[in-house]
Amino acid sequence: MFVDRVRIYVAAGGGGNGCVSFRREKYVPTGGPDGGDGGDGGSVIVSVSPRLHTLMDLRRRKHYKAPNGHSGRGKNQHGRNGNDIIIEVPPGTVVCDSSSGGVIADLVSPGQSVVVAAGGKGGKGNARFATATRQTPRFAQPGRVGEERWIDLELKLLADVGFVGLPNAGKSTLLSRISAARPKIADYPFTTTRPHLGVVDLGDGRSFVAADIPGLIEGAHLGSGLGHEFLRHIERTKVLVHVVDMAGIGEGHDPVKDFEIVREEMKLYNPELALRPAIIACSKMDLPEARENYEKTRDILSKLGCETCPISGVTGEGVKELLEAIAKALDL
């Protein structure tokens, strides 16, 4: 199961209390203070692990509590610090505070980490408070409380190219044609219900990562058809490929209108997406009706401000030209 959003509760450990103690040795009846400091509480840390690709593991556990620091003891013995808790997440995870909605960190690189709940500092023992005029302090400092809060973890896929379009436009077929990815393919809308990534090797040391985004529908920017769940995954892409079904005319589809629906939904969701380099992939050109419809609409499509590539994910027609257009847009 692909899980790309979870909410969890994190609580750091409290600091240990400082100790009130005095030296008691033979022949030293009035020894000075020797109370040790308390240990620091453990922190909760979110860290990127390259072996993870989803947030599914975090669905099973919602609460994370780091241990408290130990209290100080006599003979100037400091308490042991509480151990930190490490929560591993996949690259591309955005960490947000649930109450304010503010972004705490955007974790994209393996090994990158952020403290989401800092452990409380340990209290000072009474030995710390001895002065020339106060030689026998009978008090110590208590440990501080650790931080706690609810956080949202949101995964945004890391891809160079995003395949977007209406349901059943041929995005998954195209991805399976150009990479080793094997998304589910069938002749009905919303076959793809989760994003898929594929690495495309162009040869000569050139490659890019492509993401097949589940089909968008009108109103996606408002959440229709799980629009928000899908649109977030194209926010990091550098180039967008609009896959348009050329064989769908007569079934309530029009290639130009289909393209404009998807582009408008992305613009309403995030205006920056409308500024990304875009390519129109006219799909299903192996079907006679698609070729006929392409000839009817090619002049209109060419005026939309995007390079147009007629392709067939089934036969491979035009795929090489599309990949070269993508490589050019990526400056590969």
Rank of each mutant, 00 (worst) to 15 (best):
32 G>W: 00
185 I>C: 11
210 A>G: 10
23 R>K: 14
318 G>R: 12
150 W>E: 15
139 F>Q: 12
122 G>C: 12
311 I>Q: 06
57 D>I: 05
284 K>Y: 04
175 L>Y: 06
280 I>E: 02
160 D>I: 11
65 K>V: 15
263 R>S: 00
202 L>P: 07
76 N>P: 00
203 G>E: 09
75 K>N: 13
215 G>L: 11
94 V>C: 07
181 A>Q: 01
200 V>H: 06
183 P>Q: 06
85 I>M: 09
332 L>P: 03
94 V>D: 10
120 G>I: 07
53 H>A: 08
206 R>E: 14
282 C>L: 01
196 H>T: 07
52 L>E: 06
175 L>D: 02
229 E>K: 13
286 D>G: 04
330 L>D: 04
92 G>H: 07
294 Y>L: 10
300 I>V: 15
169 A>L: 04
180 A>G: 09
26 K>V: 13
317 E>W: 02
126 N>M: 11
194 R>I: 00
201 D>Y: 11
58 L>F: 05
270 N>T: 02
301 L>W: 00
262 V>Q: 01
249 I>W: 01
229 E>W: 03
23 R>H: 07
297 T>S: 09
243 V>F: 06
78 H>G: 06
172 S>Y: 04
266 M>K: 05
27 Y>G: 05
214 P>A: 02
259 F>L: 01
110 P>I: 07
217 I>Q: 07
113 S>D: 10
25 E>V: 05
38 G>I: 11
175 L>E: 03
18 G>I: 13
218 E>N: 06
298 R>W: 02
306 C>E: 04
329 A>I: 05
214 P>W: 03
154 E>W: 02
110 P>V: 09
41 G>R: 06
216 L>M: 13
85 I>S: 02
156 K>A: 09
129 F>D: 08
157 L>H: 03
331 D>L: 06
221 H>P: 11
149 R>M: 12
266 M>H: 04
55 L>D: 01
207 S>T: 07
316 G>F: 11
17 N>I: 00
234 I>L: 15
177 R>E: 04
244 V>M: 01
144 R>F: 11
182 R>A: 13
197 L>E: 04
80 R>E: 13
226 L>Q: 14
39 G>F: 05
296 K>S: 13
289 E>R: 09
258 D>W: 01
148 E>V: 00
228 H>F: 12
270 N>S: 15
237 T>I: 15
132 A>W: 09
56 M>R: 14
195 P>Y: 01
185 I>R: 07
325 A>R: 13
180 A>K: 14
310 P>E: 10
3 V>A: 10
314 V>E: 14
203 G>S: 11
208 F>D: 01
56 M>F: 12
297 T>C: 11
157 L>F: 08
70 H>K: 15
278 A>L: 04
10 V>M: 12
90 P>N: 07
315 T>H: 11
232 R>G: 01
325 A>V: 15
127 A>P: 00
241 V>M: 10
165 G>F: 02
20 V>G: 14
180 A>M: 12
264 E>V: 03
227 G>C: 09
280 I>M: 01
